Simulated assay, not measured.
Amino acid sequence: MDRIPITTEGYATLKKELERLKSVDRKEIVLAIEEARSHGDLSENAEYDAAKERQGMIEARIAELESKMGRFQVIDTSSLSGEKIVFGATVVIENVETSEKKKYKIVGPDEANISKGTVSIMSPLARALVNKKAGDDVIVQAPGGDIEYEIIEVHFN
């Protein structure tokens, strides 16, 4: 059984989502199905079909989260420090060609969201950055070709 790295914040967020799915969303969808059933013929009842589909998605997400909860390796990043990039580090990188700067925190795959500035430890970018430090250059293999970045800052927060 493979362990899945996750920050304490990410674990808390997913645990809260699981609790909401079980205690709120599950009950709401049961009521929606009952309401749709009361409208009569189920063979042509779009409300019923939509509610059953939503119920399936909720149950699938619950099953996925319950399966992963036991495999998570929760890492408290608040006590991390140092110069080298590791799981939990926040990095500022600059594209050598375009001078565009970006800031990312390296997190687990289940909490990564590039639009929120988090990137999975398993991504090509994070793999290129791990064990490097400020001032180092890295080449990231991207679908559009290799991209060279300079690491501007490394910090832990």
Rank of each mutant, 00 (worst) to 15 (best):
I4L: 13
I6K: 03
T7S: 14
G10S: 03
Y11G: 02
Y11C: 03
A12M: 03
T13A: 13
K16F: 09
L18F: 07
L21W: 09
K22W: 00
K22V: 00
D25T: 14
R26Q: 08
V30K: 09
A32H: 05
A32G: 02
E34D: 14
E34I: 01
A36V: 11
S38M: 13
H39Y: 14
G40M: 03
N45E: 02
Y48D: 02
D49F: 12
A50I: 06
A51N: 07
A51F: 01
K52T: 11
M57D: 12
A60Y: 08
A63F: 01
E64F: 11
L65N: 03
G70V: 08
F72H: 05
I75W: 03
T77F: 01
S78D: 05
E83T: 09
K84I: 00
I85R: 04
I85W: 05
V86G: 06
V86A: 11
A89K: 02
T98N: 12
K101W: 03
I106L: 13
V107T: 14
P109E: 15
D110G: 03
A112G: 02
S115H: 12
S120A: 10
S120T: 04
A134G: 06
A134C: 07
D136I: 02
V140H: 10
I147D: 09
Y149V: 12
E150F: 01
